[in-house]
């Protein structure tokens, strides 16, 4: 199992993801700097969370033009798996590897808390293999711009194709976990082939019961098993 994690200037979850991958696989992932023109041959590229380029211009907009992103796109075009977490999701959108946009949270504030998420498993994807439709998992979020938005046509396509992977859960008593105003409660979306996933929640932070839970561990572990 070979994982490559990319560090952009301002990434701040690169170490956390690295530690989580090591904990799951027992092996250190490759960490590469955004200026690299080559990505080592691998099964999964992860774009970690953080504030690449200080979120200047738009979140992820500058990082999407880093030299390494050309290789990330090639990897995705070859059918390789890519996971963008939080700021990594924003970069994937700016790089047009996924559709839609992430705008300022509806509450206009940074939000950090645990949310309940509902699995939406309509297409085959290594990221969802482990889960059943409508499974509920808990993960933390921490972001300022996680409010997923797409125009009605794009949104319809995404929904019709079943590309939504996770939704913020609305419990039976009407309690909403949508922390940011995301349209259709979307927390994560997939590419058409199910191999590129962008997600706002941070699975790498829940890889230990002591730190809040194991749902992130299960999510990453099953993904890595599917990809190896």
């Amino acid at each position: 199992m070979r994982v490559t994690i990319i560090t952009f200037p301002g990434s701040n979850c690169d170490r956390d993801v690295s530690v989580a991958i090591k904990k799951i696989t027992g092996k250190n992932p490759s960490n590469i700097w955004h200026q690299e023109n080559e990505v080592p041959n691998c099964d999964l590229i992860i774009l970690p969370g953080g504030f690449s380029y200080g979120d200047y211009l738009r979140c992820g907009a500058v990082a999407a033009h880093s030299p390494v992103m050309k290789e990330v796109k090639n990897h995705a075009a070859r059918g390789g798996a890519v996971l963008g977490i939080c700021n990594g999701f924003q970069i994937l959108l700016e790089a047009k590897l996924l559709e839609g946009a992430l705008i300022r949270n509806s509450g206009l504030k940074f939000v950090c808390k645990q949310v309940a998420l509902k699995i939406n498993k309509q297409i085959h994807s290594p990221f969802l293999h482990h889960f059943k439709q409508n499974d509920i998992i808990h993960l933390p979020i921490a972001h300022n711009e996680g409010n997923y938005f797409a125009d009605s046509e794009t949104l319809k396509q995404i929904e019709d194709k079943g590309l939504v992977a996770l939704r913020y859960h609305i419990s039976s008593d009407g309690n909403s976990f949508n922390p940011n105003g995301s349209i259709n409660n979307i927390a994560a979306i997939l590419s058409d082939n199910g191999k590129v996933l962008g997600m706002m929640p941070h699975p790498e932070r829940y890889v230990d019961n002591e730190l809040g839970g194991l749902d992130g561990f299960e999510f990453l572990k099953s993904t890595l098993e599917q990809l190896s």
Partner: peptide, 24 residues
């Protein structure tokens, strides 16, 4: 507290709101 990232760095055992914050 919800406006602060309390779990980045992956070592927060007890976030704000208790007697003490605890990290590994």
């Amino acid at each position: 507290w919800e406006q602060y990232d309390t779990s980045v760095m992956g070592d927060t055992v007890i976030p704000p709101g208790q007697n003490s914050g605890v990290i590994r």
